[in-house]
């Protein structure tokens, strides 16, 4: 089992506010890891740290055998880390196809045929029929799919998904889960932050719970979800009270 991503004692503070506290975990290659936790727990901060948008205050991050703690986001992407944003950030002035073309041209080592790579991803994610539409004119579901498609077009080894199922209908969510499963089956490792727990549980083979910037539980999804303290933190109620 090769370790793809390794976080060791990662801390991040904004003044007195500590948004990541001693975060330590390994991600084996090919694993799909779910991350849950209340709003403001530091989940998106975790992605900013892994993706390189934020430098940690202390601690180490290694990816694919290299220390990337101080590596900027663009270089991490070229090393194989891709992310989708919680609030979609499409390149609104460009077509869907061009959005992917940026990613396939500049992502991991750059595809030799960026056009073909972009077209191929559009087929996988079901956006081909929207290829030449302006990204600004897409519906919410399409924007979420664009986030996923653009991240995939970089050719990642690790895919970071930030609440990609939020705001979707049951059917849309189901389709998205199927797509993400397909991606995982090609060997891409995934870390997925999600509030829609049943969507998450359908995909991940490990679950981390974060609260106040700390990892409070880590393990098999069903076991983690069954822990009373997780229920308490996550549901915001004490299990005894609920019973």
């Amino acid at each position: 089992m090769t370790v793809l991503l390794e976080l060791k004692g990662v801390n991040k503070s904004f003044g007195a506010l500590r948004v990541a506290q001693d975060v330590t975990f390994d991600l084996p290659e090919g694993q799909a890891l779910g991350v849950i936790g209340p709003n403001g727990a530091g989940k998106s901060t975790l992605f900013n740290l892994i993706g390189g948008a934020l430098p940690p205050s202390s601690g180490q991050i290694a990816f694919d055998g290299h220390d990337v703690t101080r590596t900027p986001a663009s270089a991490r992407c070229r090393a194989g880390v891709a992310r989708s944003f919680q609030i979609p950030h499409p390149f609104v002035g460009m077509s869907v196809f061009e959005n992917l073309l940026v990613a396939s041209s500049f992502g991991e080592s750059g595809h030799t045929d960026p056009e073909a790579a972009a077209a191929h991803i559009l087929d996988i994610t079901g956006l081909r029929h929207r290829a030449n539409r302006h990204a600004g004119s897409l519906t919410l579901l399409e924007r979420k799919r664009l986030e996923l498609s653009r991240a995939l077009a970089t050719g990642p080894k690790l895919l970071l998904l930030d609440e990609i199922a939020g705001g979707l209908t049951e059917g849309e969510c189901h389709d998205l889960v199927a797509t993400i499963k397909d991606v995982q089956s090609t060997g891409v490792s995934i870390i997925w932050i999600e509030h829609i727990v049943h969507a998450l549980m359908a995909v991940v083979d490990r679950l981390i719970v974060i609260d106040f910037g700390r990892i409070v539980a880590d393990g098999d999804p069903a076991t983690v979800m069954a822990q009373p303290e997780v229920q308490e933190i996550y549901m915001g109620i004490s299990v005894e009270d609920a019973a």
Binding site: P90, F91, G93, M94, E98, V102, S105, F106, A151
Partner: peptide, 25 residues
């Protein structure tokens, strides 16, 4: 050019451009 693709991406969202491998700086 290929570089123009990156510049247009930076115009629309710098943070997203950086996240797909464009060295924005």
């Amino acid at each position: 050019s290929r570089w123009g693709l990156a510049l247009t991406a930076i115009r629309d969202s710098e943070v997203a451009a950086e996240s797909v491998g464009v060295n924005t700086m």
